[in-house]
Amino acid sequence: MIIPKQMPLEKILKTIEGIENILVVGCDGCSGIYQVGGIKQAETLATLIKMHRQLNNEPGEIRHTIVLRQCDQQLVATTLRPQMENIDALLSLACGVGPQTLIDVFPDHKILTAVDTFGMGGKDRELGHFFEYCSGCGDCLLNDTGGICPMTRCPKALVNGPCGGMLDGKCEVGDYKNDCAWFLIYERLKKLGQLDKFKKYREPRDWRVAQSPRKLEI
């Protein structure tokens, strides 16, 4: 899923300075599941903003709501249209796709985000860690790399790793705390008896497939 993180409150307050009536819009997709953009978080953020405004004697109405998936234009339209009365700005708690979808639907409103988006990954609930696993490069290598993505999990996105910075299976980036993706690839391929795949030379990538913006006809 997409990894979201709520911005620090101060930063959010600064972005909405001077805007009176705001609808905080959660998203029940990835962001909701990760409890960053769920209805509870939308309510909490709206309450915090209201408190801040009361303390500072600032005018305006702060409401909150949620869309099942903020990346779906039709869902956004049907859910939010009836709630737009008097609203000056929408403050999104979805990933970076959410606010841009909101703009598509409500081009005349101010659209803001309260989230920093970190890409696609998974979560370890026990450790409470998010980790990025895919950067949507458009030409998946996983079948060739033992199922480990070097485009995302190697900070240099190397296709012929590991680089000289690997030590004890750890990566030079991040003070040797993170796994070296190419070490993981080596270990996986070794276990699968496919070290020939590790040893083979891979041509430099054709970056055209990853050329943004991309559009997929479905």
């Binding site: 900070p155 996105a157 296709v159 012929n160 790793g161 680089c163 980036v173 430099p204 970056w207």
Partner: peptide, 17 residues
């Protein structure tokens, strides 16, 4: 690792390519 850690890494090629 260096003294301009904010820089954008390139690595379009690697030592092998």
């Amino acid at each position: 690792l260096g003294d301009q850690p904010e820089a954008k890494p390139v690595f379009d090629l690697d030592s092998a390519s």
